[in-house]
Every structure is written in structure tokens, then in C-alpha cells.
Computed example of a mutant assay.
Amino acid sequence: MSNETMKILRNSGWYEGRNIDTKEIEENLEKLGFIIYPEVKKFLAEFGNLVIEDTINDETHNTGVKFRSQGAFKAEEKYAQENLVPVGFIDSDNLVLFVSESGKVYCSTGKLGDNAKEAWESLIGGSGGKPWGRF
């Protein structure tokens, strides 16, 4: 990750090796019918419960959201070709952030990265990821 991306994440409370207790987040998602895959749990442990003030793009990204309903993410899963679990909101709450069962990170409009760090770099660093159907 770039120094700028790391600085924004650190200012939000993230640090290398972060490993929070994810029990409450997992229980909330499981009540809604989501399966907490190992890669989802890994993402939540490192990046869960953060409010990231993205000063580069003037946006907020929130991984501390409690979802109230499962929602209709079937279209996104069809594009991703794997199961997705919502883990927060990005772009000032305009897009849902997902982690797939394989650990890839997506949002409502496409793929952000093959892993969490690549996704944060795409999102904060400015490339914005790849729209559905273009990866």
C-alpha cells in the first residue's frame, strides 16, 4: 500500500497486525443468514469497526455498520461468481462493501481488489477498482 493509504488507515485506528474480537459482528451477520467464511473473518479482524476518513477523495468508509436485513445481493454474487458478505459501506455510505468467500473485496459497482490491502489501495489511492463485467 502507498504511504498515503496507510496514513489514512492508521489515522482511522488501523495498524499492522490488528486483530479485533469479531464475535458481535459475526453474530449480527449470521442472524441475517450470512455464512462467515474464514476470509471474511480475517478481513473483519483486521479492518472491522473502523470509520475511515478518506481525505484524498473526501469520502467516509465505515466497516462498523450493523446490517439490519440481508438485502438483495444476488446480482453482485452473480457477477462475482461467489458468495459475498457485506462488511460495511464506502463512498460516504453510497456503496456496500463486500468480502467474498475467497477473500476478494467488492463493492456495489465492481471489484476493488484480490485482497483487503489491494482493495483499500484501489479505493483510497484512486483507481476505484474494476466495474462489473470488466475483470
Rank of each mutant, 00 (worst) to 15 (best):
A45W: 04
I52S: 03
Y37E: 01
G48R: 10
Y37G: 05
E77G: 03
R18D: 00
S12R: 11
R134Q: 13
I90F: 04
I124Q: 10
N62G: 00
E4N: 12
W132D: 04
I8M: 05
E118V: 14
K31N: 15
I90E: 06
V99M: 11
V99N: 09
Q70W: 10
W120A: 06
V65D: 01
G17I: 04
L44Y: 01
E39R: 15
T55A: 01
F73V: 07
E30V: 13
E27Q: 14
E4G: 00
L29S: 09
E59K: 15
T63H: 07
N3D: 13
G48N: 05
I36N: 06
V105C: 04
V65G: 03
S108E: 05
Y79K: 12
T55D: 07
V65E: 11
E121F: 09
S69D: 13
E53P: 00
P131F: 14
S69W: 13
W120C: 04
I52G: 03
V40R: 13
E53W: 07
V40K: 11
I52E: 01
P38C: 03
K31H: 09
D114S: 12
M6K: 15
R18T: 01
K7L: 14
E121D: 15
G126W: 10
L112R: 14
D91R: 14
K7H: 12
G33E: 06
E76A: 12
R134T: 15
N28D: 02
A80N: 01
R18F: 02
L44H: 00
L9T: 02
S127Y: 09
N94A: 14
N28E: 08
T5H: 05
E101T: 10
E16N: 12
I8D: 03
Y106L: 13
L97F: 13
Y37F: 15
E76K: 09
F34S: 05
Y15W: 12
S102H: 09
E26R: 13
F67I: 09
R134V: 10
N83P: 01
H61K: 07
P38E: 03
Y106E: 04
A116S: 14
T55Q: 06
I56P: 00
G33Y: 06
L9D: 03
G110P: 11
D54S: 08
E101Q: 15
S92N: 13
I52N: 03
L44P: 04
F67W: 15
L97S: 02
H61C: 11
E46I: 02
G13L: 05
